[in-house]
Amino acid sequence: MTTAPIASELDLLIGTKWKKPSFIQRPWLRWGLIIGFVIYLIAAISSVEVNWARVYEGLERGAAFIKAFMAPDFVSRWTDIRDGMLESLIMTVASTVVGVLISIPIGLGAARNIAPLPVYLLCRGIIAISRALQEIIVAILLVAIFGFGPLAGFLTLSFASIGFMSKLLAEDIESTDKVPAEAIKATGASWLQWVNYGVQPQVFPRLVGLSMYRLDINFRESAILGLVGAGGIGATLNTAFDRYEFDTAAAILILIIGTVMALEYISGIIRARVQ
């Protein structure tokens, strides 16, 4: 470390202003992005038509809704609510089971480190399709094909679960620790034995965790499938909103929130036990 040149460097710096270096180094890019974003925001906000008079009117209804939350009405439509919730839960459980069972082979196939290329591409294709289509659109199509009822909802949720589970599962398998897997391979195990001993133990806890998470998601999604006639609590909820029966709607929403919390709680316990 020579002191002379550094000292002069210091002399140069003393008294100069210091500015934090920008996140984006190139000024034209930085300002381009900032200005572009501002222009977009202005255009976007100005293109939103808000009928403030209508919104103002709505505040009263909003207040009514909040009041309804304080005094939810479980009683007057109890049979509808009970049947709807039960149907939602049934669809949730059945579709999660089927979705998980199908997603295991697809997840294995979509993991580059254990599947041959053609299988990999096929499975990744299935995942891409399943993830690109939202539940509600799939439900609309399936209702058109299979008719109204929980079967369409069940199929929708199973289909959506497959994409979700397989993708995460495949990523997990791809990121497994190679050493234990190789050690198993070195013992002369067959492919199935290798997956069973080398990969499965590492991935299984995650699989359980993901299944519980998906159960939770499926329940939340099942609540909207009724809007398009695919069964579940959504139909009852929709009717309640249509009739402005906020107290019944509030009761249903509270049940949904409560069920989601219960599911999260249970899944937390199960995940803790598996890991």
């Binding site: 550094i6 000292a7 460097e9 210091l10 003393i14 100069t16 210091w18």
Partner: peptide, 14 residues
């Protein structure tokens, strides 16, 4: 800021 530069210089991290 000047003091910061001086200190950084003192510890050799200018």
């Amino acid at each position: 800021i000047d003091e910061a530069f001086r200190l950084l210089d003192r510890v050799g991290l200018l």
